[in-house]
Amino acid sequence: MDFGPYLMLAMLEGAVLAAVLALMASGLSLVFGVMRVVNVAHGEFYMLGAVVAWAVTTLLGAGPVLNFVAALIVAPLVVGAMAAAADMVILKRLNYDPERTIVATIGLLYILQQLTLMTYGADARPVVAPFNERIALPWVEWGDKGLSFYFPWGLSTTSYKLFVIAAAVVLIAALKLFMAKTRAGLIMRATQGDREMATAFGVPVERVYALVFGGGAALAALAGVLIVPIQQAHYLMGGDALLLSFIVVIIGGLGSLSGTIVAAILIGLSDGIISVFFTPTLAKMIATLAVALVLVFRPQGLFGGTSR
């Protein structure tokens, strides 16, 4: 394939990854921002989103579109409720001590993963996309007769992949609006700013925390539902997604939502583009090392201001 179309294809693939990553990482970022909790089990909420989507579509059996819409509603609610419960039963009692919560969420990770294995099983299972037309994409070329359009071999995407990108944009815009304009968003930001002050002003911090933890998990679950028609649900799918989200949240500056989104786009696109130039394992090595060094030499992230 020619270089131009190849790069475009890689960027398109990168954009799908970026979209899903942005959703998932904003959940992680929200939880860290408001609660100062590093949620290692976040990847499992993503996995559960995909698994619940499979369960909903299988149980409902109402045709691809209706199934998918139902999954989009049910999965975040179920997973969010589970996470809120975990917050109230476990994290609250640890008093949100940073190190102990990390250990507890590692435990939660294993519990969720293994329970999924025991119930859902070890297979990767597919969910039918609500629509999935292959769209061949044109490319322009400057030839003898000036500009000409043609359809390069292999340059294509699917309508569903475009939908994922659009859906993520809409959802994230909604999240930003929610945080900026609503009273609930204000309360969350207030709690993030100063927990004790918020308590003093009568903010029910415990309830806010449960909601934030549940909400963060719901965002991961939504990402899981969106990806499952492309990737299938598998009980080990959370691990790599978690690592990528961590990278995104760090690069974006811990706890900064806008930074997270920019970083997700950066990481997603570069993942696609790097694969054009490097062998994939080497690419992953370089990317991981680069992120670690960012954290070492610029702990506030590439886009963050001073760390709070």
Binding site: M1, A10, E13, W153, Q231, D240, G272, S275, V276, T281
Partner: peptide
Amino acid sequence: IAIPPTETSFTKYFPKIPR
């Protein structure tokens, strides 16, 4: 074309297939 075992999306590798 070698693909890492943990990879979850593959389309970006296919352009490496020679015409």
